[in-house]
Write a protein that binds this DNA or RNA. Structure first.
Lengths: 217, 217
DNA sequence: CAGTGTGAATATCTTCACAGCA
DNA sequence: TGCTGTGAAGATATTCACACTG
């Protein structure tokens, strides 16, 4: 196993590594065996030195004068990110978005296996979606402890996100991905990530407006 | 209208402004009329000066010695972001995720109205979801031109994302939010944002691993 | 000699600290 | 007095430029 240099790794680097993995997979499917940082950079929309620097946090994966072996590099990055294993995940909140995620193939393909789903709506409890039976939220803490689940996904309405988080924390979860548009509080040792695609729509709307303003100057 | 100072506004600022709007709405619902940067910062999980600096890009919204009027501030931010209007949106790709977004109330509530949905699967064409009839993708460019749509959402499988983008570009769209896990290329004048929640799962997985490594030291 | 790995230079972002105003 | 608005300082992140190597 490559040893990670002991430096703090920028958040932004992690986000980019995920993109690199994605693009490397596409290249692998296209039968490309070797790739230069320049070409990879081009298809990921970043600067070549950026890629080299990002990779340097974890080790030396390239061959000077040649480039990177696509398969090797992908595996190395995945290992560096802790993705050379599967992660058990539970979901809280089975609304439209929750259902979509339960049925989404890509999660499993990337090593994130949803092992249970919870909701507090009695009409939903007992329903089966993509092979998973919706259970009552109150069973959550015990279940996650029993199954050794480490990651929780919150897809409740915003006002119930904190309660969902509390259940997850009680259940000894180590990380939370919150899809609800509300901030949650969690102890230091629990990692929290927010997903809110409304932000991206905001951002697009803003940038369109800016472009137009610039066009007038 | 407040005049924006002519400086380039950091991407990160835009992302945070969206969070501020979210939290301000929660506060408004709780009947809070005035808020200090310190309290708002606390509930958004950022530094108070950060908030003041972010707002300063757009104008002076606060009252010294008092704080910010919640309603006023929210409106001012929305105006600054170009959200004091509605945006017509079209969707390409009606899979699990597309359906979830079509049914999602929040998009409309935030001023993003999905006015049409397209797919190339003949089995899906004609189907009606949340009051919107799925149309054949080939009709896309003409429809967006006719309806004056400015934003396109891509929720196709990755291998079809570029083609979807091409249709949208041909249709004169100004911004794209790509939910498919693949990079797309678009002309300079088209704004592109990527949404990929797998990245956030990667990030959580990585941070959990890191925490554990740190724990061992 | 093409392309990596990396220190040094630059650019960007965040936080501090405090002047200035209600 | 209390909290904003902001220049200056500090911290991070990105890009450059080139020594080095397969």
């Amino acid at each position: 196993m490559h040893l990670q240099k002991y430096e703090k790794i920028p958040r932004a680097t992690i986000a980019r590594l995920a993109v690199y993995v994605q693009e490397l997979e596409v290249m692998e499917q296209q039968g490309i065996k070797v790739i230069s940082s320049e070409k990879l950079a081009w298809s990921c929309g970043v600067n070549p030195s950026q890629i080299r620097k990002d990779l340097a946090y974890f080790g030396e994966f390239g061959v000077r004068g040649v480039g990177y072996y696509v398969y090797e590099l992908r595996e190395a990055i995945k290992q560096s990110l802790g993705l050379d294993r599967t992660w058990n995940v539970v979901m809280v909140g089975v609304g439209n978005l929750g259902r979509a995620l339960l049925r989404h193939q890509l999660l499993r393909k990337r090593g994130f296996v949803i092992v249970a789903a919870f909701d507090c709506d009695p009409f939903k409890i007992g329903e089966e979606i993509a092979g998973i039976e919706v259970q009552c939220s109150s069973k959550l803490p015990q279940s996650t402890i029993d199954m050794g689940v480490e990651i929780g996904i919150i897809t409740t309405p915003p006002e119930r996100a904190q309660r969902a988080a509390n259940y997850l924390i009680e259940g000894g979860i180590k990380g939370i991905v919150n899809f609800a548009p509300s901030r949650i509080t969690a102890p230091e040792n629990v990692v929290v990530e927010y997903v809110d695609f409304i932000h991206n729509l905001f951002s697009v709307a803003f940038n369109i407006t800016q472009h137009q303003i610039k066009g007038l100057l």
